[in-house]
Design a binder for these strands. Structure first.
Lengths: 131, 131
DNA sequence: CGGCATCCCGAGGGATACTG
DNA sequence: CAGTATCCCTCGGGATGCCG
């Protein structure tokens, strides 16, 4: 199918697992959901909806389906009178939690620098625009 | 600025740096670019274009601008007759490389499980459709 | 060579309303 | 409560073409 993976290793070929992972965690709601479940353990749909501020139910449902499909979380339906659905990370999902938290730590440690860099960049490049 | 990082920590408020980081690494080309520069050191525009298969020059340029704005890489113009432009990670960018590589390692270790889970999920859910 | 500018299409994703 | 379905609009991002 591909001759691209020959030399060294291309994380850049489309077939590389790195690309596939980016599809997953690149979805902002997916990573937030994983972190939410990592902190909260087993959670109901409505709990997640409340916890992850700003997500629409469409996106939440879609995200949960994708993560379930990827085997990162389980969906448990309790057929009581008001239906109850719980979501929980699988061991696989929990293992993904760790590298994600590394990113989170980086963010908390360095986002101030990033924001400062942005401001400087915007000042420097914005000179020619306003007369 | 925010009280979110204090207790338990809400990665879920919009103001949280986690969200902002997701904006950055959520862009698939951004993370690939960072990894490329992490492996290749200083690279020219055309080198990056070749290395990161599938990226359009529009997206590559846009990605490089964003990363430069964030202070993650430097853009060096050598005004020779054919203009030469080099990109290189800043220390800040290099520090981001580490958590990204954690993700990369996770992907290489677990993507097979994910793919298997996907196949099973697709088989299980497809039964009701075809009569 | 490197990179903006333009056009343009299709997917992403929010708001709303309905169902079991 | 936990979705599913529909509408609809934004914008990501590829193709193409022009500058310094």
């Amino acid at each position: 199918m591909d001759a691209t993976t020959a030399a060294g290793f291309d994380a850049f070929a489309q077939s590389c697992p790195s690309r596939q992972l980016l599809e997953t965690i690149g979805d902002k709601w997916a990573s937030l959901t994983i972190v939410a479940l990592g902190l909260g353990g087993r959670m109901r749909y409505s709990e997640l909806s409340t916890r992850i501020a700003g997500v629409s139910q469409k996106m939440l449902t879609q995200t949960l389906r994708n993560l379930e499909r990827d085997g990162l979380l389980t969906r448990t339906v309790t057929p009581s009178v008001p239906v109850r659905v719980d979501y929980e990370l699988t061991p696989l999902g929990s293992s993904l939690l760790e590298p994600i938290c590394h990113l989170k730590l980086w963010a908390e440690a360095h986002m101030a620098e990033v924001n400062k860099a942005r401001e400087e960049y915007d000042r420097g490049k914005g000179r020619a625009v306003t007369p």
